[in-house]
Structures are given as structure tokens and as C-alpha cells.
């Protein structure tokens, strides 16, 4: 039914990334031309203990901190497990691959091509953005998370 024209890839390192590594990786990616949108995905790092006997108490976590990508500051709320990208065309994928080959030296990674990201709005987007959801923004953030995507600009 949906027929998204733009290729998508995801970068899956065999280890979950520390904020500093994620920051380096994202800055490297932000320097590659032809990336339409990006998403980082991984398990959440909530500010408060979400359930259990200690529910509601503060949850200090050293990996929940701000990183800087391009000119944007991003308050990480997850541990980065994978980076999903939508790109202009297949040549961009090769560029991402060659950059990643140089980046992941301590542990391996996989670059997978396929469909990983929403390209058409669903009911959730309708509820959140109304009938004319901006398709560049949909699916980039958790549905019930108030914080939307940030925009990264970088000299390329």
C-alpha cells in the first residue's frame, strides 16, 4: 500500500553505544550529504523509576545526558542501539558504509538495507499532527513522548 521512494538503512553495532560514541557516530553521519532523516533507537533511560517498589524516585543514569550533533543539542533519553536512516539514493548508502567501516574498529556492526521507518502517517500521527502530518517528521519519536525530533545542521 505504501510505496516509499527513498531507500532506508540501519546501522546495527554489535554493542549498544555509549553517549560519546553515539555522538561521534552521529556527527560523522551528519556530515554525509543525502541523508533525509535519521532516527536513533534503543532501550529507554527514564528520569524516574517507572515501576516497582521504588516507583517515582529519581533515576540517575550516566548515559542519559546531552550530546551535540552538528549545531543541535540532543538530550539522550535512550541507550543508542541502532541508527536508522532514510537517504536520497543508493549511492548514499555506500558512502555510509565506507564511513562506518572506518568507524567501527573496536567491535563489528551490520548495515542492513530494508524498510525500518514509517513513511506514511498512521492513526497515531493523525491524533498527534492532524490530517496533514509532515511526512518528514512522522515516526521519528515515540508516539506518546512529548519531545519531537530535532533538526541537525552541519557544514558538509
Amino acid at each position: 500500500m505504501t510505496n516509499a521512494a527513498f531507500p532506508q538503512v540501519r546501522i546495527v553495532p554489535i554493542r549498544m553505544l555509549k553517549p560519546r560514541t553515539a555522538e561521534r557516530l552521529l556527527n560523522m553521519l551528519a556530515g554525509i550529504a543525502g541523508i533525509r532523516r535519521m532516527m536513533i533507537h534503543g532501550p529507554g533511560l527514564p528520569k524516574k523509576v517507572p515501576y516497582g517498589p521504588a516507583r517515582g524516585s529519581p533515576n540517575p543514569h550516566s548515559d542519559r545526558r546531552a550530546i551535540h550533533v552538528g549545531d543541535a543539542e540532543i538530550a539522550l533519553s535512550i541507550q543508542v542501539g541502532e541508527v536508522i536512516l532514510e537517504v536520497e539514493d543508493a549511492s548514499v548508502i555506500e558512502e555510509i558504509r565506507s564511513h562506518c567501516d572506518g568507524f567501527f574498529v573496536e567491535f563489528p556492526y551490520r548495515l542492513q538495507e530494508g524498510r525500518f521507518m514509517k513513511t506514511a502517517p498512521t492513526l497515531v500521527d493523525y491524533a498527534k499532527y492532524g490530517p496533514d502530518a509532515d511526512t518528514t517528521l512522522i515516526g521519528l519519536a515515540d508516539p506518546r513522548n512529548g519531545e519531537g525530533p530535532v533538526v541537525i545542521r552541519k557544514e558538509q
Binding site: 554493542r15 549498544m16 529507554g44 533511560l45 533515576n59 573496536e106
Partner: peptide, 17 residues
């Protein structure tokens, strides 16, 4: 955490660290 990849430093993920 049991089914997740380990962190870079080899630790199993823990939301509450």
C-alpha cells in the same frame, strides 16, 4: 535487559543502572 545487546563496556543494559 536479558535479550538486549550488551553495552560497549560489556555491561548488560539496565534502565536503572
Amino acid at each position: 535487559g536479558h535479550s538486549l545487546r550488551l553495552a560497549e563496556d560489556g555491561m548488560m543494559f539496565d534502565m536503572l543502572q
